[in-house]
Simulated assay, not measured.
Amino acid sequence: MSPEPLRSIHVVAGVISDARGRILLARRTEGRDLAGRWEFPGGKREAGETEAEALIRELQEELGITAEIGEPIINVPQQYPDKRLRLDVRRVLSWKGNPRGHEGQALAWVAPEKLPRYVMPPADRPVVAALLHPDRYLVTPSPADVDDETWLGALQRALESGVRRLQLRMPGVDAERRRRLARAAVEASQRAGVEVLINSDIGLARELGAGVHLRAAQLPELSVRPLPDAQPVAASCHTGEELRRAEDLGCDFAALGSVRETASHPGGSVLGWEGFARLREAVSLPIYAIGGLQPDHILEARQHGAQGIAAIRGLWAD
């Protein structure tokens, strides 16, 4: 006999900010699933309601405020042992009233950078990442076919274009040149306030004070997180098993794909957006969608639970 399908729940939540930029969290009360954890205020959408209508009602019932709902931030599919949840998070533009825990829940106004300190349900972790971290992740093309000056010049233009997180990927380059370019690229990125990760080379990342982006093949070889918390660790993933391994290792985020067919792998296997969402719901990691994507895919990516997009051609300034 096949197992009973899990019940599906659509939850709406709001990101409410005060004049100081602090964000409102509510603590789940005793007797509920995941009691004691902090979450963005909201609740279940009822039949016949739009997402905005449901959130307005929930915030009135929970907090006693009348809210004006803004644009979507992220839509997170998350599987729990007893249910499949879709967490639809919207920005609250303004509200009337004084927020209070009308259902006995504790409330806290939290500075954005302190949000990761609060223990939250799994579906809320990608929301925090969406609020704090970039929605695009540049993967550099190999410098194998150009000289150092040309490649570093293109990198500088990418940094000036607004890229805030990048991965240095340099296949086909000898070790000496790779180290030289990596050092120059890390220094340029850090001057620009851009988070930089080096593809696969844990030792070089340690030496240069950068993060590391692990290949999927490296995940089974590691038993602990390879860098301290101050240096980001990410991973390339293609399967649910790889995503779970990345999460178990303590990776800060992952890149999952390929979502669409790419010029470099025509006819290759693709997940599509629905396939991406099915894999995303098994972990709470922030995940970039990768594979044939451009900045104009970011909204669609967010609607399937992605942090944003990772790309080479779509983000590199030649």
Rank of each mutant, 00 (worst) to 15 (best):
R180F: 10
D201G: 01
A188K: 12
R179G: 01
P171C: 04
G153R: 03
L204A: 05
D148N: 10
G209L: 09
D174V: 10
A192E: 12
A185P: 03
G153K: 01
V186Y: 08
D147H: 08
D174S: 07
A182V: 00
A175C: 06
S142Y: 13
T150V: 15
L208F: 04
Q167T: 14
A192N: 08
E160L: 13
A182L: 02
Q190V: 09
S189L: 08
D147T: 06
A188H: 10
R157F: 12
Q190R: 15
R183Q: 14
S142K: 14
E176G: 05
L204N: 09
G211I: 12
I198E: 09
Q190N: 02
R165V: 01
D201R: 04
L152W: 05
P141L: 08
L152R: 03
A188V: 11
A182K: 02
G211W: 05
L208W: 01
D174G: 10
V173L: 14
V194K: 01
I202N: 10
L204K: 12
R157H: 14
L181R: 09
L155M: 11
G162C: 06
R178C: 12
E195I: 15
L159R: 07
L152N: 02
R165M: 13
L166A: 07
L152A: 04
L166S: 08
S142M: 11
L168V: 05
D148Y: 03
R169S: 05
R191S: 12
A192W: 06
A205T: 00
L208K: 00
M170R: 00
G193D: 03
E207R: 03
T150P: 03
G162Y: 13
W151L: 12
A175M: 14
A184F: 11
D174C: 06
R165K: 11
Q156P: 07
D147M: 07
R177M: 06
A192L: 06
G172M: 09
R164A: 13
D201N: 09
D148F: 07
L208M: 08
S200N: 13
A205I: 01
Q156A: 15
T150A: 15
L155S: 03
R157G: 06
P171M: 05
G162H: 11
L204I: 00
L159C: 03
A184D: 05
R183M: 10
D201M: 02
L168M: 02
E195K: 06
A188L: 15
R183A: 15
G211E: 02
E149P: 03
E207S: 06
D148H: 03
V146T: 13
V146Y: 10
R165N: 09
L181V: 02
A175E: 15
G153M: 04
D201P: 00
E160Q: 14
L181K: 07
A188I: 10
L168A: 01
Q167R: 05
V196Y: 10
A184M: 14
E149S: 14
